[in-house]
Nucleic acid binder design. Structure first.
Ligand code: FES
Ligand code: FES
Lengths: 140, 140
DNA sequence: GACAAATGATACTAAAGCAGTATCATATAT
DNA sequence: ATATATGATACTGCTTTAGTATCATTTGTC
C-alpha cells in the first residue's frame, strides 16, 4: 500500500528537525549529520520544498534553510502532493458499453470513500504536531 | 496514493462477472467480450486466482473458470495481497542513533494507524456485496 | 482419431516511478 | 580570494506495473 514514499518521509523528518530549530538557519550538513539522509538526495528535496514555498533558503556561507510557513500549516497531504503527485483514483476499465458513470459505479465509490477518509486523516497531521511529539520523546 | 492497481481492479471486475454467472463456467473469451480487459493479461490474472484457490478452472473445450470460494468470503484485501504484495509500512530512516523504537515513533504511528483503518475498511468489502450492487444498477 | 477450443506454464518487453548521484553555476560571510 | 553554502540540471540503476508472446496440455465434438 505505502501511503508515503521515501521522498515524503525524508522531507517530513527534515522539516521536523528544522522546525525544532525555530528561526535559526539550518544547513544541509547539519541535517545530514542528524538524520543520516543521503546528502545529494536531501539537497534535492529541500530545493523542491524551497520552490514550493515551504522552506526559505539563503545561499552562501552560513546559508541554509528555515521554514517559510507556520509549522502547523504544513500538512502531510501537502508533502504527499508535492512528492507523490496528485492522489488520483483509478480509471474505469469497462471502457465502453458496460461502463456506468464513474460517479455511481459501486467499485469506484467504495475506493473513493476510503481514499477520502485517508485524505481527511492525513490533513489532520502537520509538522508542528509531529515535532511536538518527537520532542516529548527527547528526539529531534 | 492508489489503493488498488490495475491487476487488482481487473481481477475484481472479472470476479464480479463470474459471480453473476453463479455455477456456470465462464471462459476468458466471454470475459474479454464483456469487460474489454486485454486477453493475455486477463488470462494471467485468472491463472493466478486459480492457483490461489479463488477460482477453479477446467481445461479443454467448454472449459473456463468458476468461483472456488463463496463470493462473500472473497475480500478486497485478499486480492490486494495477491496482486500487490504485502501491505507493508515504511522502514525507519534514522538508521542509527536518533532512531526511536518503531513502536513508539510518532511518525510511524500516525501512518500505521491510518493504514490499519484502511485495511479494516477494505476487509469489509467482498465480491458478493459488490456483485449485488452492480446487479442493482443493471450492469453485468 | 483429428481437430478446435479452452487453460497451464514461462519467458519476455516497455514504460513509469522510485531512489539516489554527479556536476557545474552562483551567491555570500570571512 | 576563498571556503562554504545553495540553485539548476542531467544522469543512472532498480523495481514495479502493465502488459505480450509462445508453446504445451487437456478435453469436448465430429
Ligand atoms: S464501470 Fe465505469 S467506472 Fe465502474
Ligand atoms: S525514528 Fe526510527 S522509526 Fe521513527
Amino acid at each position: 500500500m505505502k501511503l508515503i514514499t521515501r521522498n515524503t518521509d525524508y522531507a517530513i523528518r527534515a522539516l521536523i528537525y528544522i522546525c525544532g530549530r525555530k528561526n535559526k538557519i539550518t544547513s544541509v550538513s547539519e541535517l545530514v549529520a542528524k538524520t543520516k539522509i543521503p546528502r545529494p538526495f536531501l539537497r534535492k528535496l529541500l530545493q523542491i520544498l524551497n520552490k514550493k514555498g515551504i522552506l526559505r533558503s539563503s545561499k552562501g556561507q552560513k546559508g541554509g534553510f528555515m521554514l517559510a510557513a507556520e509549522p502547523q500549516e504544513i500538512f502531510l497531504t501537502d508533502l504527499i502532493r508535492i512528492f507523490q503527485g496528485s492522489l488520483k483514483l483509478n480509471e474505469c476499465l469497462f471502457k465502453k458499453e458496460p461502463c456506468v458513470k464513474k460517479s455511481i459505479c459501486p467499485l469506484n465509490k467504495v475506493i473513493r470513500d476510503i481514499e477520502e477518509d485517508v485524505l481527511k486523516k492525513l490533513k489532520a497531521i502537520n509538522v508542528a504536531s509531529l515535532a511536538f511529539k518527537f520532542r516529548k520523546l527527547g528526539i529531534n
